[in-house]
Amino acid sequence: MMNGLERHAAFSAWVFLTPALLLIAVFFFLPVLAALLLSFTDFDIYALGDLNRLRFVGFNNYLHLLQSPLFWTAIGNTFYFVILGGPLSVAVSLGAALLVNARLTRFPGLFRTAFFLPVVTTLVAVAVVWRYLYHPRYGLLNYGLSLAGIEPIDWLGDPDWAMPAIILMAVWKNFGFNMIIFIAGLQNIPPQLYEAARIDGAQAWAQFRHITLPLLGPTFLFVALMTMIGYFQVFAEPYVMTQGGPANRTLSIVLLMYEEGFRWWNMGYASAAAFILFVLILAGTVLQLKLRRRASS
């Protein structure tokens, strides 16, 4: 039985919650559900003008997507970005965190701030900057490589180099964020563990392998998950730098969804693509959690 005070508290709580819950329900949960429904219809530019033209088409959109070579290209490109870019980004973040957090490093705050700066920049603006850095003739990157005797590369124009170029730029932009989380994780490791290891004569690598890595486990999982979820949604980099080209080699799933949905107004078809992305992210999340559980048991 609730007494008056508790009932009053519950009432107040719901009053405080209502605006947020209402907004999230109407502008997030409802659209997500609607997207699922939409993905089973042929919603296109005609339906946009006249809803009577809307028809239920079952799994047709999904079947068309799975039969479309362009969609498989987008899936392949997105996986390329996630599988190469994700681990690279996490590795660079961990490396930077270890360097900044090292005992010998003076002014760690200075390095931390500098490494973090790209994170707070506007993605579109720095993607524009990198477009020029990647210029085959005038770009700073090719100039730097030429000093090391490397022939100029047409970074964004060569189908084989465009995606690596986008990955490089994304890692530069993002690594500082995970670095901060890794630094926090490193500082949570009791220093006595390292002292004991040193007394036992363990070298730096052994300390890293047997103390740092295992104790960073939970941080690692969190960082890997967040990075993967974010990288699956890659959009602005190819939109600004390559428009999905050359030869569709940087077309991502979200870019395909945007083009289909908001340029050609094939909203049913685009919704199906969005849902496949969601399923992929969900599967990736479950897989990582499973792997982690197996590793720790």
Partner: peptide, 15 residues
């Protein structure tokens, strides 16, 4: 939080 924002975008536009 695991639902990507892009999933909601098409119906949100219509709404």
């Amino acid at each position: 939080l695991v639902i990507p924002a892009q999933v909601a975008m098409l119906p949100l536009f219509l709404l």
